[in-house]
Computed example of a mutant assay.
Amino acid sequence: MTARWGPVFERNAPVTISRAVRGTLTGVAAALIALTPIAVTPALASPNIPVLQSPKSASLNLPDAPNARDLSGIPTQGGGGKLRDGSVFRSDALNKLGDAEQQQLVSAGIAEIIDFRSPTERGQNPDKVPASIPVKSLPVYDPNNDFYLFVGKAIQGGPSVQQQLLGDGKAKQFMVDYYKWLVTDATARSQFGAAVKEIAGASGPVLFHCTAGKDRTGWMSAILLSALGAPKGQIYNDYLASNDNLAASNQATLDGLVAKGLVTDPALFTPILGVDRDYLDASFDAVQQSFGSFDNFLSQGLGIDGATVATLKSKLVGT
């Protein structure tokens, strides 16, 4: 993430995050660095892309990863198909899983885990998963504009810095620009393309995740569902579900920051801590502007050929 998108601090200026802030980020906030969302009211669907009601994706029932879910039941266009149960999963970070929760990953048949987190995120909160399930790291981040340092600076700087970085609509614009970056940055595209190929070629179901499971994971889900022919409304329905899934733990995140005196106006963080259909709109708009169509984005932007798409459909879509 470069200076092209969102309000940032001077990239060359050293930023030291205090122990108190680090403790909040990795403890109370459960890695706020990766934008854990709070409960926000989902934006209403625009007339041309209704948020359709569909069977909710089944939870993996992981209390310590509340956004972990099976993408089953989501319909695809034509032929009455839908995503097969247990064929692909999305999640927030798996760094808190106990033994019983790890066993649920084995019971679900998960053959591989894809981790989109940066080295900093993984280092602060390494996944706790069974040794029998391989983890492939495909980090989606910009080392020249580390989200960890940005959020740490905002929290540590106090109310005036938070207002400067996030107030007056800056936070929402930050997120809109970030979702454009997910499409326009060549390295980010390369990682998402590699993830699509991993899912197609894996010996069994794949689980992909970042930390909150809402932005990078949300866009990856949108890519996958679009490639499989899911209606736009169903894609947005899946995307916005992160708000509900994470509502309880996310409120505790902000309550903890306020209790520690690190934040006095929690509303400033709402745009960067939640999902909003405008963000996903920004990614799809960037696809159209840069590639002309989603099919071109798949082939030219992600390097996904027709044979890979056919394999995905054969593996993930049933009746």
Rank of each mutant, 00 (worst) to 15 (best):
P143T: 02
L44C: 04
T24M: 11
P271E: 01
G204D: 04
Q164P: 01
A45C: 01
K96G: 08
P42V: 02
E121V: 01
A30F: 12
P266L: 04
I304T: 04
R117F: 00
A188G: 00
S226I: 02
V135E: 05
I113W: 11
N250D: 06
M1F: 10
V263F: 05
F147N: 07
L262F: 11
R84I: 08
L83D: 00
D276N: 14
L62A: 00
A31G: 13
C210Q: 07
D305P: 03
D285Y: 06
P66I: 08
K136Y: 11
A286D: 08
P159H: 10
R4A: 15
I235H: 00
L25S: 07
G79Q: 05
I33F: 12
V275D: 10
V28P: 08
L316F: 01
Q163M: 09
A13I: 00
S190C: 08
M1N: 13
I49S: 09
Q162Y: 04
N250W: 14
T319D: 09
G318K: 06
D285M: 02
P55E: 14
I272S: 03
P126W: 01
A131T: 09
P7V: 12
G157D: 09
P119R: 02
G152N: 06
D281N: 15
V28N: 14
V317A: 03
N250I: 07
T24R: 09
P134Q: 12
K260G: 11
R90W: 01
V40N: 11
V206Q: 07
A194N: 14
I304N: 09
I38N: 12
G152T: 03
K315I: 03
A20Q: 15
A93G: 06
L257V: 09
I223W: 10
M175F: 07
V15H: 06
N237G: 15
A13N: 10
L138D: 02
S132W: 00
T211I: 06
A282G: 02
G201Y: 07
I223S: 05
T264E: 15
K82D: 04
L62P: 01
N48F: 13
I74P: 00
C210L: 03
I199P: 07
S226P: 06
F294V: 02
G193S: 06
Q156F: 10
V28D: 12
A93I: 11
F294W: 08
L166I: 04
R122I: 05
V196C: 01
D255S: 08
Q156K: 07
E112V: 12
H209A: 02
P63V: 03
G292A: 09
P37R: 05
S137Y: 12
L246E: 00
A310Q: 09
N125L: 15
L207G: 08
L32I: 15
A100P: 01
L257K: 00
L52M: 05
G292R: 06
K170E: 03
N12A: 13
K136G: 02
L44A: 15
A100V: 13
Q251T: 11
N296R: 13
F284D: 04
A227V: 12
A307M: 04
G158I: 11
P134L: 12
Q103F: 12
L60D: 02
T16H: 13
P139K: 08
W181G: 09
N245Q: 14
